[in-house]
Write a protein that binds this DNA or RNA. Structure first.
Lengths: 337, 337
DNA sequence: CCTGGCACTCAGTGCTCCTGAGTGCCAAGT
DNA sequence: ACTTGGCACTCAGGAGCACTGAGTGCCAGG
């Protein structure tokens, strides 16, 4: 259906259009790439490509521009992920290794990725549900108030205040703390609800009300924080691109946590880097953008996702390279800390 | 120098320009405001106002536009802060009262303020240094590792990992924890360094190395986190305004923590709401924006600042009203929790 | 199947002209 | 001394128009 030369033509069109941001014509193509044929031949090929929906003309007397379908083909079959340069790798390393807590890792990552790709970077916090309990702590903070601190093996720390309505003795707290830790330590957070179910029976009857309060808050925390936090950076890079009037829509979308979730979330398959192009995006305001997403995690365990959002007209190979590299490094950093 | 009518003219110009976003001419002024004089008279007044630098013409045959100096006069002498409507107050209340931790309060606040003013909202986290210690907790998380958790009376929780290089007995930890809490409880964070200085002497000799490690991390935390966190929201509202090509500069500025710090920070005086207009701003990229800032805190204690950033052409009375109201409510929320 | 040639299309540019909002100034009125 | 109507002047922005040139589609010949 599409012979090799036509694919080469499509590749050339994508590359040229990405770098110049102008519709590319048959003449320009033969000049810049040595395809070994004349412009007229190219024109025939382009006519076919257009008929199949891979490219389009903004207006009759203009060159061709790749369609979403064209980019899709390019990403799937005509390009390979471009590894980062040594300098870039080193930059990542030095930039990320200084981080001292999870917030810091995430905020550095998102800024780094934005800078590296000159686009908008999006990073999801390591999912609570996929990590496991390292420690649970109960701290009395005031009369009738306890603080529950939950520390996970990914370095995430959640804290919540518990209203006990009654004074609780140091001793009871000690018991509860010990009980919680022996039962939950090392448990995957997803398994906590089950493990918690039969805990009340093991508590001295006098402490039951307090235990109930603590456990309900604990479960609440797991559920609530399951709606995972996502941050982004590099919005300024959007202004550099010409988004006609839809820039506003894109910014609005970025500020919606829910939209960001979907943005990263719905990539089902397990390849290293996934790309969603233009109208493949679920969200209305992001129809003219593409998203490059990768999982990150420790070892085989996927903790969360990160990615980059930019115009469909983006340098996919490089962006994919950057996203993949950063995802790997973040995994290493998390594993090491 | 400027009689009452000239001031009225300036006020009218500001109001009209803010609402229409178009240079306002003498005719339009007499039509929309009943000033009781003819356009010709207004023209004379406008000539004077222009000579004094309060207004300017974009080009010869156009109406007048307020200058930064004009807005300044308007804000200082020609307008009063406009209180929010009842509906708006209620919205604030319902929006903020659901918050369950500090992060939540801040993130709700910033989104609320952005929505209320239809501009970019900026909120600074309650400053660590002005709050005081509610509780210090030490938790062993692994062989040779302790977690230090610092809880302040503003609900802020800081945690850091301490490498002790050696196993520490539960007992030693208990001692240290008790010691820290008795010495530091209720202390302003600014006073902690001094109080910490003579702590090592009170520790059993065997525990000295551990204590030293803990204290140094504690001090580090105070210093590092003193660089206070600032968040913003509502960037999408910028796109609605026409910032010529400087939108990019504004976005860049917003993503720089340092710039945001300065933005909120350098308002010296103690009036409820301060306004910085256009070129009064320290930062290069924000020369065409104005900032409306207010302190917030509990009682007389100022904890931090929040504010709004928008085009110099903004509705100052309403914006100031919204900022002031939100600042008060946040104070109440923080006091109540 | 490729190629050169040719007629055709049309966005973008530069030009002029025109309109209308708005000004500044002046001389007359209160 | 201030206000006012009148009037000439300015100039941004829009409409109309011709021109240019990049780019196309198609066809006949290699």
């Amino acid at each position: 259906m599409l012979d090799d030369r036509k694919l080469a033509v499509l590749r050339a069109i994508v590359e040229d259009y990405v770098s110049t941001n102008e519709p590319v014509g048959s003449k320009a193509l033969t000049d810049r790439h040595n395809l070994g044929v004349s412009p007229a031949t190219i024109r025939n090929d382009m006519a076919v490509l257009e008929e199949q929906g891979y490219i389009a003309q903004p207006h009759t007397s203009a060159g061709r521009v790749p369609t979403d379908k064209g980019y899709r083909l390019f990403v799937d079959r005509l390009s390979t992920i471009k590894p980062l340069s040594v300098a870039e790798r080193r930059a990542i390393e030095t930039f990320l290794t200084g981080a001292f807590d999870l917030d810091d890792v995430v905020s550095r990552t998102v800024r780094l990725l934005a800078q590296l790709t000159r686009q908008v970077a999006v990073v999801q916090y390591p999912s609570l549900s996929r990590s496991s309990v390292r420690h649970v702590e109960l701290v009395p903070v005031a009369e009738g108030r306890l603080l529950l601190v939950l520390i996970t093996d990914t370095g995430r720390v959640e804290q919540r205040v518990i209203e006990t309505h009654a004074r609780v003795s140091e001793e009871s707290i000690g018991h509860l703390r010990a009980l919680l830790n022996t039962c939950l330590d090392g448990l995957g957070l997803g398994d906590v609800p089950a493990a918690v179910a039969d805990l009340p029976d093991k508590v001295a009857p006098a402490d039951r009300p307090v235990a109930a309060a603590v456990l309900s808050v604990l479960l609440e925390t797991l559920v609530e924080k399951h709606e995972e936090k996502i941050v982004f950076a590099g919005a300024a890079n959007l202004a550099a691109v010409d988004f006609s009037q839809s820039l506003r829509d894109v910014l609005v979308a970025l500020e919606e946590q829910v939209v960001l979730m979907r943005l990263l979330g719905e990539t089902g398959d397990s390849s290293t880097v996934t790309v969603r192009i233009g109208t493949e995006n679920p969200d209305e305001g992001l129809r003219s953008t593409s998203v490059v997403v990768a999982d990150y995690g420790v070892g085989d365990l996927t903790l969360a996702r990160l990615g980059v959002l930019g115009p469909t007209r983006m340098d996919y190979p490089s962006t994919m390279g950057a996203v993949r590299a950063v995802a790997r490094y973040v995994g290493q950093i998390l594993a090491g800390s």
